[in-house]
C-alpha cells in the first residue's frame, strides 16, 4: 500500500544540511498495524507527515496505492490523501469554535458530500463511538479522552484506508489510552491499515510490527 525508497529530509541550518530523515526505505502492506518508535527528535513525526503527504521529502521515491506520489501535482496529491488517509494527533487538534458534530463533519465538506448524506454518516459514527449525547458540545467541554475519540471519529468519517496517528495516547491516562488502542485494534480487524507513532511498548504491542527510528534512520 505504501512504499518509501531512499526518502530523505533535510533542513539547511546555518548553511549545513541537517538530516532529519536519512535514506529511509520501507514498505507497508494493506491491513498492517505498524508502530514507529524512537527517541525524541529522531524524526518520527516527520516520517508520518511525509507518509500523510502533509510534508514533502527533500529526496526519494514515494508510492501510495500504486501511485508515484513524488510525481504528483499538489492538487492530485491533496485529492489522494483526502480520500484515503485519516490523521489522529497527540494534541487532538479539534477546531474549538465547532461542536463535536461539526468537527466530525468537516472532512466531508471538503469532499463535497451532500448534506443529507453527511448527516447520516456523522450520525452513524457518533453512534459507533457512543457520543450521540455529546454532539452539540464544544471540544473544551470534553475530557482529553473524549476529545481524542472525536479526533479519531473525524479521521474515520470518510472511511480512509490508512490511519496515521502521532502519539494518539500521549496526552491521555492509561485507561483512556487502552480504550483508544482497543478501537485501533478493532479498526485494523475491519481492514484499516494503521501506522502509529508511540513511546509506549504496551501500545506497540497492539500492532503487528514495530519500526525503530534513530537519528533519521531505520535501525
Amino acid at each position: 500500500m505504501l512504499e518509501f525508497k531512499g526518502i530523505s529530509k533535510w533542513y539547511n541550518v546555518g548553511g549545513n544540511k541537517t538530516y532529519i530523515l536519512n535514506n529511509v526505505d520501507l514498505i507497508i502492506r494493506e491491513g498492517e498495524f505498524v508502530s514507529i518508535m524512537g527517541p525524541s527528535g529522531s524524526g518520527k513525526s516527520t516520517l508520518l507527515h511525509i507518509m500523510g503527504m502533509l510534508d514533502e521529502p527533500s529526496e526519494g521515491y514515494h508510492y501510495f496505492m500504486g501511485q508515484a506520489v513524488h510525481l504528483l501535482k499538489e492538487k492530485q496529491r491533496s485529492q489522494l490523501y483526502k480520500q484515503h488517509i485519516g490523521f489522529v494527533f497527540q494534541a487532538y487538534h479539534l477546531i474549538d469554535e465547532l461542536t463535536v458534530y461539526e468537527n466530525i463533519e468537516t472532512p466531508l465538506i471538503y469532499q463535497n458530500v451532500k448534506t443529507s448524506e453527511r448527516k447520516a454518516m456523522v450520525a452513524d459514527i457518533l453512534d459507533r463511538f457512543q457520543m450521540v449525547g455529546k454532539k452539540d458540545l464544544f471540544p473544551t467541554q470534553l475530557s482529553g479522552g473524549q476529545q481524542q475519540l472525536v479526533g479519531i471519529a473525524r479521521a474515520l468519517i470518510a472511511s480512509p484506508r490508512l490511519l496515521l496517528a502521532d502519539e494518539p495516547t500521549g496526552n491521555l491516562n492509561s485507561k483512556q489510552g487502552e480504550e483508544i488502542m482497543e478501537i485501533f485494534k478493532k479498526l485494523n480487524n475491519e481492514g484499516v491499515t494503521i501506522i502509529q507513532v508511540t513511546h509506549s511498548e504496551k501500545n506497540a504491542g497492539y500492532g503487528s510490527r514495530v519500526i525503530n527510528l534513530l537519528d533519521g534512520r531505520i535501525s
Binding site: S78, L94, Y110
Partner: peptide
C-alpha cells in the same frame, strides 16, 4: 486542521 482534513 482544515487543511489536514482536506481543505485546499
Amino acid at each position: 486542521v482544515r487543511k489536514v482534513v482536506g481543505a485546499e
